[in-house]
């Protein structure tokens, strides 16, 4: 059985720190539909596999909507920014899915972990989004985004991939977080734009 949640992107500016999420919204609007106009229609519906520790996974549908006028009132130039990112051509375009995945992870935290506010964002070491910054006992959410590949690709990010010809084995994000002595609680939030699937899972403790 699928549980559905409707979420308006402008709500994110209230649920989380404005300046932390503001730069992720244009990338969400630019990345999720890709280059096609057809896929740009509202809502963006993500089918998300939600798992809390040992409990069985549940399927959740997140229906993402937005009101451009309301968003622009709080993030001036947002629509033009999204268009610039969509038209791309930039050598740095890998930052668009990265930022969009953070935006979507902020949405998932707001929907599935009500009341939790992200307090810090880190890039040098996992997890990316921290909601408890107690020294030596961090709690947070590790994020990744993939443009294609669906659930299989996201599971590869979570669990790692075996060695193949020419490619070494990779350690999954889940195992990396479990190995960390300074992380007390960890979740992963993985997003794919096409097809629109996601995994939100508590991996520690």
């Amino acid at each position: 059985m699928t549980t559905s949640y409707a979420y308006a992107l402008e709500q994110l500016l209230t649920d989380q720190e404005h300046d932390l999420v503001a730069d992720t919204i244009a990338p969400v609007l630019a990345w999720v539909p890709g280059k096609t106009t057809k896929r740009a229609a509202q809502p963006f519906v993500f089918e998300l596999e939600h798992k809390l520790s040992t409990a069985p996974a549940k399927t959740v549908a997140i229906h993402l909507t937005w009101d451009v006028a309301k968003l622009q009132a709080r993030i001036p130039g947002l629509a033009a920014h999204a268009e610039r990112l969509k038209s791309g051509g930039s050598a740095q375009r890998e930052h668009v899915p990265e930022l969009a995945a953070y935006g979507l992870a902020f949405v998932a935290i707001s929907v599935l972990m009500p009341g939790v506010r992200v307090l810090a964002f880190r890039k040098g070491l996992a997890p990316d989004l921290l909601f408890d910054v107690t020294p030596g006992a961090f709690k947070g959410v590790e994020v990744a985004g993939r443009s294609t590949g669906g659930a299989a690709s996201l599971r590869g990010v979570r669990d790692g991939t075996p060695q193949t010809a020419g490619k070494p084995a990779t350690l999954g994000k889940a195992a990396q977080l479990v190995a960390r002595a300074d992380v007390a609680e960890a979740h992963i939030s993985l997003w794919c734009a096409s097809p629109r699937v996601a995994i939100q899972q508590k991996v520690k403790p």
Binding site: E98, Y102, A120
Partner: peptide, 24 residues
């Protein structure tokens, strides 16, 4: 104070990624 500095750094990093995505 620690949390305030971390939040400040976080916002700066996120904004920086946004600038890098523009790529000029």
């Amino acid at each position: 104070i620690y949390q305030a500095h971390l939040m400040s750094s976080s916002k700066l990093k996120m904004k920086a990624l946004g600038k890098l995505a523009e790529g000029t």
